[in-house]
Write a protein that binds this DNA or RNA. Structure first.
Lengths: 209, 209, 209, 209
DNA sequence: GACTAACCGAGACGGTACGTCCCGTCTTAAG
DNA sequence: CTTAAGACGGGACGTACCGTCTCGGTTAGTC
């Protein structure tokens, strides 16, 4: 099992180059802010997460937050990513169907356990804040796309998918329905969906003959 | 070509039963509000759309807005739906691939012509306002799902899709990637995507032999 | 012509005893701070003078300022006093009317050349900061009162003022109107005022017979 | 005994013309704000008076304060003026010395009973806020100068002061020392000062013979 | 034709959160 | 031991909108 882990926090919040002079950044404050953000998120929902509330709960000055994160969404993203340690484990099984199935089941399970409201909130935020949308892509979306790409590319190498497969499209075909259900909430994101998606992208004409 | 058109405005905002007595609702004010909402949306983006700004631009009192719509998003949705006349035309061609292709191309074209920022904003709003999410489903999402279901079900009847096809899942498989691209904005929602989606759901093992 | 010059800087800010060990105080920093304070004062007014701005302009750390002065007003007072060299020259002419006239004309002239906004700001500051009020008295006010007292007392000795003259009250009667006009800004502090004040305190009943 | 009372509150806070349309201004809120301002002033001093504290104490939104007063000082001035009902009574006695003495004693007594810190704070504020300085003049200073002018002019008419008396200067000669002592706080503003000032402006050469 | 219910505009209200400024203190590394 | 740098907790600022609440003034039916 390998791991992808390259969403450097620097992408989120590099508002100033690290000087060697001056008082160093307080790691205690940083952690208190991230903890407060997640705590509020879980307790009262995305609506209740405000910079003011985070500052109060973390016993921190508001400017300390603004010094390091450009927006509320950036804090939440950072908190979410940091807590989840955000490894996106890529399973090694032997067949595309097995690996993809496991990969998606794991991912969907995570969403079931409290993460769904958070990622929904982040995606919503990304719609109104272009700066955050970029950070969201860099830190969250692209890492997951990369992991899924690894799985699919191994499938191509093993000839389980046609050689000319458009991997990027397949990724959209898999993550698209997941996000759609996540956001519209008309149907669950569960193991059944995982299997249907596996079928959708593997049981196809090219592998017929 | 048939049409679906059932987004009754009543779903959005029936805050009070229509009395027969008293001054009737001003249609002029209603239209000015909807126009102002769209105008702001197009000119300054979703961020700039506030009840306050709509009222000012429409030269209308804020309570007049609150009297008829429960939230900013409801106004925008109403404005969008009203302007676009919101027919979801279902093509009649003869083959699933042709009908589905045309259906999706038409839909994606609409998104390209200014509608994309609006629907992105609406979807974002739906994430934080449960009441609006329901309205968004009732008025916007379900109408489109219904139209697409019609196309797919005709495909099943024509034996172009297997009899036990999970139509609802197929709808997710088609609208999912569209929304995903719309929201993440990493790739265009265009004719190419339409064709890839047609292929994805039609060129499958079951129809092979 | 004698001189009064006793505004020991010690009154303003003796926050720590001078150690003989260690790096000595940077005279360059001290001067840069005082210069920056006056520069800001003249360029942008008292409002713009903040510790933060002084530190930035002087390219000095904020703690360096706080180490040597207790407040913003103390810096400004020090800067003002230092620049103006703050001699309060006491003229020697022969008659009270001549000496007092010259003394006041000189004083008022100084106020006209940029000093007015500074002393107004200092007096304002003294109203909200008791510590600074004491320093302001010690360094600025009392020196001027002392000089004026000298002039008046010589007038008493020369019998130009009655023997039982309340010199302290006369000082108030002279500096009072000056400050009043300075602060309220309804009338100029100029030579005319100087002459009227000379008349006011000299052409009086006691010297009549 | 006559009265001067022309400090129309309009000078302080006429930020918008009174429209006949719209919800009328809440007198309850207005009074609560003024009461809170004075209460804070008396309890904790000028330093403690902040818009935030006033709003909290008055149970009023901050914007409601900013809607009607341009600054903290304006609120305090309005509160002070309103409470004191701000009549400046002009005594009618028969002789300048009697009338002036009574006038000043009354004025100084008021300052002794809690008003001193307030007017000191207001004068300080006037030094850094030009808009407020104008209001302070219009509402407070000029009314008092007017009352004193009345007393002095009657003295001129009665030939107790020379015909060509510069009344404006005499006003400065009287109020100047008062303010000077008020601000510098080196000597009391009391009945003794009142009598000395009466002597200063009346027992003069011209009335000698 | 007067009444009256419900609408309309305007705009003030209490309130929340915003993002910023500056305070005075602290913690570094460098000199 | 001071310095420049700069982060820290904190408090207040003035603003933008929120959603609600009066107002005075229409605008239709209904009586």
């Amino acid at each position: 099992m390998s791991t992808r882990d390259e969403y450097s926090a620097a992408v989120l919040a590099p508002p100033r180059a690290r000087r060697t002079r001056g008082r160093p950044r307080s790691q205690h404050a940083r952690q208190a802010i991230l903890d407060a953000a997640l705590d509020l998120l879980e307790r009262d929902g995305y609506r209740a997460v405000t910079i003011e509330a985070i500052a109060a709960q973390a016993r921190v000055g508001k400017p300390t937050i603004y010094r390091w994160w450009p927006s509320k969404a950036a804090v939440v993203l950072d908190a979410f990513v940091t807590r989840a340690r955000m490894q996106v484990p890529v399973p090694q099984r032997g067949s595309l169907r097995e690996e993809l199935g496991e990969f998606l089941e794991t991912a969907f399970q995570t969403l079931g356990s409290g993460a769904a409201p958070i990622v929904r909130g982040l995606m919503a935020e990304a719609q109104t804040d272009p700066v955050f949308r970029q950070a969201f892509w860099d830190i969250f979306i692209s890492a997951r796309r990369g992991a899924l790409a690894e799985v699919l590319e191994r499938g191509v190498q093993r000839r389980e998918l046609p050689e000319n497969t458009d991997v990027d499209f397949l990724i959209d075909a898999i993550y698209g329905p997941m996000w759609y259900r996540l956001l519209v909430q008309h149907a669950p994101v569960d193991a059944t969906l995982a299997h249907q998606l596996v079928d959708l992208v593997t049981v196809r004409a090219p592998v017929c003959p």
